[in-house]
Design a protein around this nucleic acid. Structure first.
Length: 141
DNA sequence: AATGTGACGCATC
DNA sequence: AGATGCGCCACAT
């Protein structure tokens, strides 16, 4: 693992938090950052997912046990900066679990956060990890 | 070692 | 409304 201890620990916290996102729900990079106690590091959350290991590397967190597809940006749009087909790939993965992904006129792949967003409240003294995660958080209106 | 880039988000203009 | 600036900091060159 080519990263510093600190970066590795941060990435692990990210992966661990992402694993808490329920099937068929999505959340944002910024929210994951907030959940692990570093609300200003949404960008680093993206970096962590970008470097999520392949399943066959044997890494304990990998693209098979971390639902990376459930993380999108705060605008409710699948990050267009991934691989050329990466965004489409992510959309396909989300649709496979029942998430309605719409395509905008400019090709943006959007998810309705009111409908599918997962934003449970986190306790002030609870950072790094949280044992619960039951609320599905969608309380529109 | 230094600089540029970027799976982001929010305040401002 | 859309555009720009800035904080954040791991990684590639």
């Amino acid at each position: 693992m080519p990263r510093s201890e600190e970066a590795t620990a941060f990435f692990y916290a990210v992966y661990s938090a992402v694993r808490e996102i329920p099937y068929g729900k999505v959340t944002t990079y910024g929210y994951i950052a907030k959940l692990i106690g570093t609300p200003q590091r949404a960008r680093q959350v993206g970096i962590g997912l970008k470097h999520l290991p392949q399943e066959d590397t044997g890494a304990r967190y990998n693209n098979a046990n971390v639902p990376w597809q459930r993380v999108i940006n705060a605008k409710g749009i699948i990050s267009p900066r991934s691989q050329p087909s990466g965004a489409q790939n992510q959309a396909t993965a989300l649709r496979a679990e029942g998430v309605n992904v719409t395509t905008g006129s400019l090709g943006e792949l959007e998810v309705d956060l009111m409908e599918y967003g997962w934003f449970p409240p986190q306790l002030p003294s609870e950072e790094g990890e949280e044992g619960n995660g039951n609320d599905d958080g969608n309380s529109q209106n």
